[in-house]
Design a protein around this nucleic acid. Structure first.
Length: 113
DNA sequence: ACATTGACCGGTT
DNA sequence: AAACCGGCCAATG
């Protein structure tokens, strides 16, 4: 099944735009969300070619293991600046900061802060 | 048309 | 945790 690259790119961007501050998502999750679960690599390609506008929080995209994008020093600082937690090995703590898009959004809906 | 290359993924050592 | 492996798929040469 062919892919309309432009449409694909727009969908990827719309998902990225919806990532809440302090949360991250993987390429695979994005691919899944836009209905193309086999195209995680293509998601990466879209971002690599992100000559796209500023204001796009593409730093909130990591891989499934929580590893950051190669050749992008500074991504870590951007994430830390918004409160994303890192494990001693330098990976994002997905358990706490992975965006669980299947659940109710407003953070800590079930907590009693 | 064929081979290589990834901002990938999940499972298995 | 990290290294390895097989699968994946569009782009690129």
């Amino acid at each position: 099944m062919r892919v309309d690259y432009e449409a694909f790119r727009r969908e990827v961007m719309s998902v990225i735009a919806a990532i809440p501050r302090g949360k991250v998502v993987s390429y695979g999750q994005i691919a899944f969300l836009i209905g193309r679960p086999r195209n995680s690599r293509l998601v990466g390609r879209v971002l690599r070619t992100a000559s796209d506008g500023p204001h796009m929080p593409c730093h909130r995209v990591v891989n499934s293991a929580g590893r950051l994008a190669p050749h992008w020093p500074g991504q870590r600082q951007l994430l830390e600046a918004e409160g994303v937690l890192f494990k001693p090995n330098g990976h994002v703590d997905m358990k706490q900061c992975g965006w669980r898009f299947m659940e109710i959004d407003s953070d800590d809906f079930f907590s009693h802060a």
